[in-house]
Design a protein around this nucleic acid. Structure first.
Length: 763
DNA sequence: AAATGTGGAATTTTT
DNA sequence: TTCCACATTT
């Protein structure tokens, strides 16, 4: 079968395992996604499964999308009706369908972390809770932790007064969420888990349906996710779990590697032991890089045990550089990158990794001055931006007026003269009458307050709802951002242009959301079997449970589906730029990616491994796994760098080299001196044809210089502008096509100029 | 309601 | 140092 061609023996064994649960230990770069998708394609091709009987679970939407794309290329079978998504997405879908049994309103809204914190603060105010003694963030963490252990307030053990109070706050929080019809991320999972444990009819329905469960990144599952999976796995289901204990780097947010150890015990059946397969052949990196990774990770004590190997050559040695200061470290990297660019390496094949986000500053500064294009990952995502959250809040009010969080967010934004005292009165009224703010506002209106600005707000929302009643989603969005005054507000704000663009982008996002949902859907598919055992409830196979609307993550109307989408998929950090750029990111966000060349920076004790992990062995071992992830991102070339001194919290700190550098055998490492900063030494000429190296170095066929001969601008430099004359650069911000400099012109005064448009010359 | 000041903290992050 | 949240001022 052509599906199975080119699989190595272990991959082949994994893909064609018989119907039993299996744990696939898939090392970095061992073809994990390939095995997962080929397994599904093979199950479909051999008729062992239909798309309806498969449940595929990932952690990120990106991973789910990638699996679906690759799967579609492997099989001619129509994949509609297959459940493939994130834990949260799948739970959302199930809860929408069984909202009644789950005790939720059909249009329940999903709180992201920001919304959740805002709700907690609101609760603190309503109940006069001391936010000094019980910081809101701590409660947020406490609640998430409890839910991830599957504990409701009554199940949390409270040994001390402080914890007892936190539990009380947790209970208040729950009551508030329930009243407002909102669920946080952890709640999606817990509610769904409880739905399955308390409604055996529903549970058995899904158990019968999903004969094959496949889970990606199994080492990242938390306790609740693990229990959810166990609940869904019926007596005849096969669980296919893929993961790598050596790449477990999310313990701090509840991931529990021990789930891998328990797997064999928990998923074995008397007659069917769990199959264990190790994928150790690496298709990504050259030998020296893998040797370094293997040697490093050997220092960890709790491992299932794995050793990566490659049939490719050894490749280059790992290069290391100890810079006198953080500035020199940045300068070193800039020099090396310039050399690589000169050799024709595409810049987006180079990654600059660091332990914590704050470290990017120095690099950004140096790269900006060197006019090297770069892209920083992390930071504000699209759906998290304030203007987008505002627009979404208006939309939420249209969908569900009793959403107090949404109400408060926009009732006076843009400012419309609804002050704090009005709102306090309103909140009092709502509290005493036990209604939502919206209802209280409407009631106030009825009492002859039609002239107030609050009444105007109510009319605004009602008019918008009326005007968009039968509009397509994107028109609803367009109408709302206009009618709410958001667009006008940002248009007149001096730095509002980007926000206006984002709001316009939201309309596009709505449009493509609808388009993609349409593509993914035919008619709703009936899946409930004839026995109709949707729980023993009196309801005749309730219409909210019997059909699965494959679109819109199970929601019934496009607006609610879009709002769920916005909460569950926060979107990209920033739009990708046109030209290739150096990739800057934390090691955590590099997981799953690969690059021709990787720089691992800041290799100093205290930074990496981070000092907060010094206390216990587990902490250090997680840091070491992080280092392992970093090393295994590199295909061909790996640089390690450290700074003997660096500016930290406003003070110079002198560091010593990270233990992780020492744990790499010295025979694999070539230390560089400041002299050979150019780093273009020992280039393996065999590499020139291999894709990553776009063109030969001589620039014969117009080698794409990632940096077109753009001049380098520095603060303090004198420049000339065609219209404004001569001046001095006094500040700079942004990067790539957003890069701007502030120039103090002799005659024209101080101005901000976009480098892409203002044709500045050195003067 | 915007502007300015002050104090405190400063891993990692997806959903 | 730099960023943020929050408080106070204007």
């Amino acid at each position: 079968m052509s599906l199975l061609e080119k699989l190595n023996p272990e991959q082949l064994a994994a893909v064609t395992l018989p119907h039993a649960s299996a744990l696939i230990l898939a090392g970095a770069g061992s073809g994990k996604t390939r095995v997962l998708t080929t397994r599904i394609a093979w199950l479909l091709a051999t008729g062992q499964a239909s798309p309806l009987s498969i449940l595929g679970v990932t952690f990120t939407n990106k991973a789910a999308r990638e699996m679906l794309t690759r799967l579609a290329a492997l099989t001619p079978i129509n994949l509609r009706g297959m459940w493939l998504g994130t834990f949260h997405g799948l739970c959302n879908r199930m809860l929408r369908m069984h909202h009644r049994d789950a005790g939720l309103p059909q249009l329940f809204q999903i709180l992201d972390t920001q919304d959740q914190l805002a709700l907690i603060k609101r609760m603190y105010r309503a109940h006069a809770i001391d936010d000094e003694r019980y910081p809101p963030r701590e409660l947020q963490w406490f609640i998430a932790g409890a839910k991830e252990e599957g504990r409701r307030p009554n199940a949390v053990e409270a040994g001390d007064d402080f914890t007892r109070r936190q539990v009380e706050h947790y209970a208040l929080y729950e009551a508030m969420c329930q009243r407002e019809g909102v669920v946080d991320f952890a709640e999606l999972l817990l509610r769904c888990y409880e739905l399955l444990t308390t409604h055996h009819g529903i549970r058995d329905h899904y158990r019968r349906r999903f004969s094959h469960l496949l889970v990606d990144e199994f080492q990242d599952t938390n306790a609740l996710q693990y229990r959810w999976l166990r609940e869904l796995a019926g007596p005849n289901s096969a669980m296919f779990a893929v993961g790598d204990d050596d790449q477990s780097i999310y313990a701090f947010r509840g991931a529990n590697v021990a789930n891998m150890q328990h797997f064999e015990r928990d998923f074995a059946r008397p007659d069917l032991p769990v199959r264990l397969i190790k994928l150790e052949q690496n298709y990504r990196s050259h030998g020296h890089i893998l040797d370094a990774a293997n040697a490093l990770i050997k220092n960890n004590t709790t491992r299932l045990g794995k050793n990566l190997w490659t049939s490719e050559g050894h490749g280059e040695l790992v290069r290391a550089f100890a810079a006198p200061s953080d500035l020199d470290e940045a300068a070193f990297i800039v020099d090396v990158v310039k050399g690589l660019v000169g050799e024709g390496l595409a810049l987006d094949q180079v990654a600059l990794l660091y332990r914590s986000n704050a470290q990017s500053r120095v690099f950004e500064h140096a790269l900006f001055n060197a006019a090297l294009p770069y892209r920083v990952y992390g930071g504000m995502r699209f759906f998290e931006r304030a203007e987008i959250k505002h627009a979404l809040a208006y939309l939420r009010l249209l969908a569900e007026p009793s959403d107090d969080g949404a109400f408060l967010r926009v009732v006076n934004f843009p400012p419309r003269g609804i002050g704090a005292r009005t709102l306090e009165q309103l909140q009092d009224a709502a509290r005493t009458q036990g209604t939502s703010l919206w209802q209280a506002a409407c009631a106030g209106n009825a009492k002859g307050k039609a002239g107030t600005s609050l009444a105007a707000f109510v009319r605004l929302i009602e008019a918008a709802r009326e005007a968009t009643r039968s509009s397509p989603l994107s028109e609803t969005v367009a109408h709302v951002i206009e009618a709410s005054g958001l667009l006008a507000h940002y248009r007149q704000e001096k730095d509002g242009a980007e926000r206006v663009e984002n709001l316009e982008e939201l309309v596009n996002a709505a449009q493509s959301f609808v388009r993609e949902a349409d593509l993914a859907v035919d008619a709703p598919i009936r899946v409930t079997d004839a026995s109709g055992a949707m729980d023993g409830a009196a309801e005749p196979a309730a219409n909210d449970g019997a059909t699965e609307d494959v679109a819109n993550e199970g929601a019934t109307d496009p607006l609610t589906a879009f709002l769920a989408h916005a909460a569950l998929e926060a979107g990209d950090t920033q739009a990708a730029e046109g030209r290739p750029a150096l990739q800057l990111m934390t090691i955590h966000s590099a997981k799953g990616l690969e690059f021709h060349t990787v720089f691992i920076t800041g290799l100093e004790e205290g930074l990496f491994p981070h000092e907060n992990s010094f206390n216990d062995l587990e902490g250090i071992e997680e840091e070491r796994r992080l280092m392992y992830v970093a090393v295994t991102r590199a295909r061909r070339r790996l640089y390690l760098s450290l700074a003997k001194s660096r500016m930290l919290h406003g003070q110079v700190r002198y560091g010593i080299s990270s233990r992780f550098v020492d744990e790499i055998p010295s025979g694999l490492v070539q230390w560089l001196s400041a002299r050979d900063r150019r780093g273009a030494i020992d280039v393996d000429r065999a590499e020139w044809g291999s894709g990553a190296w776009a063109k030969p170095p001589s620039g014969v066929v117009g080698a794409p210089r990632a940096t077109p001969p753009a001049p380098t601008w520095r603060i303090g430099q004198s420049v000339r502008h065609a219209k404004f004359g001569v001046g001095v650069i006094i500040d700079a911000e942004g990067r790539g096509s957003d890069a701007r400099v502030q120039v103090n012109f002799r005659d024209a005064g101080v101005k901000w100029l976009a480098l892409d448009y203002a044709r500045l010359e050195a003067a």
